[in-house]
Design a protein around this nucleic acid. Structure first.
Lengths: 221, 221, 221, 221
DNA sequence: GATGAATGAGAGTTCATTCAT
DNA sequence: TATGAATGAACTCTCATTCAT
């Protein structure tokens, strides 16, 4: 009986997570405005009113998604940044690698976040996304580059802020649309090809990013 | 009577353009889903039914926007690509410069296009955006880089397709959100600052992009 | 064909009035909160969206009712007040007579207005009801009584403001509930008896009101 | 164990009263329809389901309020009516005085009752309000007046039933809306003025009511 | 006895679109 | 060509209530 109670408590948490994960997929495909809570409820096979019951409103559901994911990914980059056994360039390399890994694996969620960041309306959402997710991560990268410049490891002409923009902008561009990605890679004839699931492409992309940053940041002998 | 018809045609062309320009601004601010044709009609001071009458539907209005803008910007890059007096690196530099210029000047329109490209639903829109606007431009850049590699001007390890992604991804990242941009530049305390109107920032950004590509593409002596 | 067009234009106005009249009856029976615009639409046999199309919102529909009725009843009392051929007491008598007549005839509308005046929430509605309908009428009565006192026709101990409250409060009490009214008159056994349609009762009530005010206002010889 | 049960019973009685008092205040401000049991539960800091558990439904909660208050105020008027040391006029004076006192002090509750009496729907509520609270009180007043007429103390032309309506109608009109009241008294500029808490106004109002009834009921020598 | 979770019904509102003229 | 009127569908959200524990 205790276990029964326990499992029900879990079910409640599970249900929330279940709704969140369903919502992420739908938001990723159809956008925030384009997805109705009716669809989410239907897809998650829960009552329509449950969503407002749990999250309060559609916007708050979105914010819950942001909180949920932010809390699950926090500390990934800090660890690397704090690792004194690595050169700054090595840190950048590891961060690129991990970032690409993470985004390829969570591409649905990432697209949701990216879409809302791009949207000018719904300021509250944009604000929380930028402040809670995007900016903190970017700041870590910027500071590593700044440290590299200060220590003489990196080219003093490099622009730390814009280098960060290049790193995440390139990744975001790749993530922004499967169709765009395939078109660019001349794979648009193959509907079934998903670049984000192709390890070879992931390696190729990671190499490109690392190479770009090495060439730009490192002093040339 | 001929003149009458003619003037009416002109009037309706003007009206169409007027609606298109109004719609671009609203779509840019509130997104496609977030903007109702009621709002567009009100802002353009035309009858609500006019819009469906002229464009058929909301989606077709959007496609008209794409067509309209694509037809107005076509041939800008081809000219540069065909200029035999320039080295491939110089072509890249010019293209970066012009692209940044153009996007900063038309940032409202650009954001609309970008938003819809990111959205996975509304396939028809995405298809036409990618095929009519994004891909042709990218292809030109990719081919220039390929030519540079083939001629030995560029590093043979460079990845032409991903280099193109880096160029437009970095710019898109900057364009995607004023708030993000200001946050990155530590200007988020100043609500009135619009980076896209700041020539100094435009220069700084252009320099960064050119520098990145030079360091990456050019062989190091 | 011209007449056809004309009749259609009228239909539009008619439809608005039709909706208003339907809404008055429903609001009177079930209150503002208790009546859904779905019910109003069904009862008026118009499309649900029409109501918002015409009136903007449920609250604005109510305000339209107030405006509509206020504009139809304006000037009824002013005329009496301005009639110099009458003594102040005669004016009061005529006003009581007409007020009772009017309210008995429009008891549905009156109950709606009264209900919302009593409701503390929905301040905006209350405000407009009091300022546009109740207060102006009351002010006229108060001023007549004041004039009577000033001219020596009325007892100087009378309280003009509270006398007005007595006049309209007594009528409102009678109008407030058919069931209450019948209970008071020991007619609660007869479900079909509608006091507001009984001329004998109307006369009895009018006489009572006039008698009360005569005894209170007129100096006793 | 007995004590435990006992204490729980006491607790639940307290809780019931607590809920009732919270509900009275909310109903008075926002009306019956306008107040959700969620709000009541939140304001009373009890579980939402508690209210249905204790009272069965929202309507039954309201009836409980009526019962509760009716049982707490019963016998106030009977006492006066039965007092043989008073003339009928003195009884009317005392009743007016006490009634005004009681309503001014319990104006929140009174407004709830009055609102629901005015509402035509929810017959059951209206029925119990009229039968359990309003009618019994009114009947006492009516009978006193009838006794005065029969004994020759009062004017034989007076209408006992309608005189009762005038008494309670005037008071209800004053109680129905603070805003109306202040507007009538030319105090609508002062948001903070609460006439029901102003002893001077209470005296003025009581005097007016007594004066009206004296002038109307007493034979003029 | 007491409660958090869950639900179906219905609320007001807004939408893109169509129709009659 | 141009438009005010009208519509049906769908939206988010809140409601009173119930149920399993």
């Amino acid at each position: 009986m205790y276990y029964q109670i326990h499992s029900i408590v879990d079910m409640s948490t599970d249900k929330k997570e279940h709704i969140i994960n369903t919502a992420i997929e739908l938001f990723a495909v159809k956008g925030f405005e384009g997805t109705s809570i009716r669809e989410i409820a239907a897809a998650a096979q829960v009552n329509l009113a449950m969503i407002n019951y749990y999250f309060g409103s559609k916007e708050k559901l979105f914010e819950s998604i942001v909180e949920y994911k932010a809390s699950h990914s926090r500390g990934a980059l800090e660890e690397v940044a704090a690792d004194t056994s690595l050169t700054q360039m090595q840190k950048i390399e590891v961060i690129i690698q991990r970032h690409v890994d993470r985004l390829f694996a969570n591409r649905h969620f990432h697209r949701v976040i990216f879409q809302e960041m791009v949207m000018t309306s719904r300021s509250a959402l944009q604000e929380s996304i930028i402040c809670k997710i995007i900016y903190p991560n970017n700041q870590i990268i910027t500071q590593i580059i700044q440290s590299g410049i200060d220590s003489g490891e990196f080219n003093r002409n490099a622009d730390p802020q814009l280098c960060t923009v290049t790193i995440i902008g390139t990744i975001n561009q790749i993530m922004s649309s499967k169709r765009f990605c395939n078109k660019m890679l001349n794979r648009d004839d193959d509907e079934t090809y998903v670049p984000y699931e192709d390890d070879a492409f992931k390696q190729r992309f990671t190499n490109h990013m690392i190479s770009i940053m090495q060439n730009h940041l490192l002093k040339q002998s």
